[in-house]
Amino acid sequence: MNKETLENIIEKESHKSTITSKDIPDLDLYMDQIMTLFDNHLANHKKKEDDKLLTKTMINNYSKAKVITPVKGKKYTKEQIIQMLIIYELKNNLSIQEIKDLLTPIYESDDDLSKLYDHFIEIKHSLNQQLQKMIQKIIDDYQLTIENYQDLFLLVSVLSSLSHSLTNIGEMLIETKEL
């Protein structure tokens, strides 16, 4: 792997599309419409073209686990769709129970979930723009040459370990939060 390939990978990751609250219609949507919304806006999140970002089973499981607020009828509100987007963002690092523990105080408050979610997306985009510098600093500080397989191994291992450490910190923050 060369430096240009790494830069392209980081660029691709940092520019993945998102769904903001403005992208969600103000009218209630059926489950199939929500899955289409996800597929249309988040297609570049798929590793393989036939991967599913969201399924009926996932939505039903989130409802049963009360990670999204109860559905009235067969249509989902804009707020429930935002809840699904938050779950989508968190589910690779946190358990459904941890996500529920994190979201329940928000659901119980009068906080505007749309504003909170959009602010999260802004912060995420800002930090993603800094990925190139952060990874380049690791390469420079530890004199790694990514063309060398052992150095590539070290870089991937460090990034994976950093991801794990950040997830652990998030989990501990959830466990110790004061309600």
Rank of each mutant, 00 (worst) to 15 (best):
64 K>H: 06
154 L>K: 14
15 H>E: 08
147 E>A: 14
106 I>P: 08
49 E>S: 14
144 L>K: 05
42 L>D: 10
35 M>H: 05
143 Q>T: 14
144 L>V: 08
28 D>S: 14
59 I>N: 03
4 E>W: 07
137 K>L: 06
117 Y>T: 08
19 I>K: 05
138 I>D: 04
165 S>F: 11
38 F>A: 08
160 S>G: 11
70 P>H: 00
174 I>E: 00
102 L>M: 15
143 Q>D: 15
129 Q>K: 14
130 Q>A: 13
156 V>I: 15
40 N>W: 02
67 V>I: 14
149 Y>P: 15
151 D>Q: 05
2 N>A: 02
76 Y>F: 13
170 G>N: 13
41 H>D: 07
44 N>W: 08
9 I>V: 15
65 A>M: 03
163 S>F: 07
67 V>C: 04
79 E>T: 15
146 I>L: 06
45 H>L: 02
12 K>C: 10
123 I>W: 04
153 F>H: 06
36 T>K: 15
128 N>P: 01
87 I>R: 04
3 K>L: 11
146 I>E: 04
101 D>P: 08
49 E>Y: 10
140 D>V: 08
64 K>F: 00
168 N>R: 05
137 K>F: 04
122 E>C: 12
51 D>H: 10
164 H>A: 11
141 D>T: 08
161 S>N: 02
25 P>K: 12
10 I>N: 03
37 L>N: 10
111 D>R: 08
58 M>E: 01
29 L>M: 15
29 L>P: 07
140 D>G: 00
152 L>E: 11
104 T>M: 13
129 Q>C: 04
88 Y>V: 10
34 I>D: 09
173 L>R: 11
127 L>C: 09
121 I>W: 10
59 I>M: 06
160 S>K: 10
93 N>R: 01
31 M>Y: 03
46 K>A: 07
136 Q>E: 10
49 E>M: 11
103 L>V: 13
135 I>W: 01
56 K>E: 03
157 S>F: 09
110 D>W: 03
142 Y>Q: 14
173 L>S: 03
33 Q>P: 04
86 I>N: 05
53 L>G: 08
169 I>S: 00
22 K>W: 02
168 N>A: 08
69 T>H: 01
158 V>G: 02
179 L>K: 09
79 E>M: 08
116 L>D: 10
102 L>N: 09
101 D>K: 15
8 N>P: 02
22 K>V: 12
118 D>Q: 12
169 I>G: 00
42 L>N: 10
158 V>P: 00
174 I>W: 00
71 V>G: 00
91 K>G: 12
121 I>N: 07
28 D>F: 02
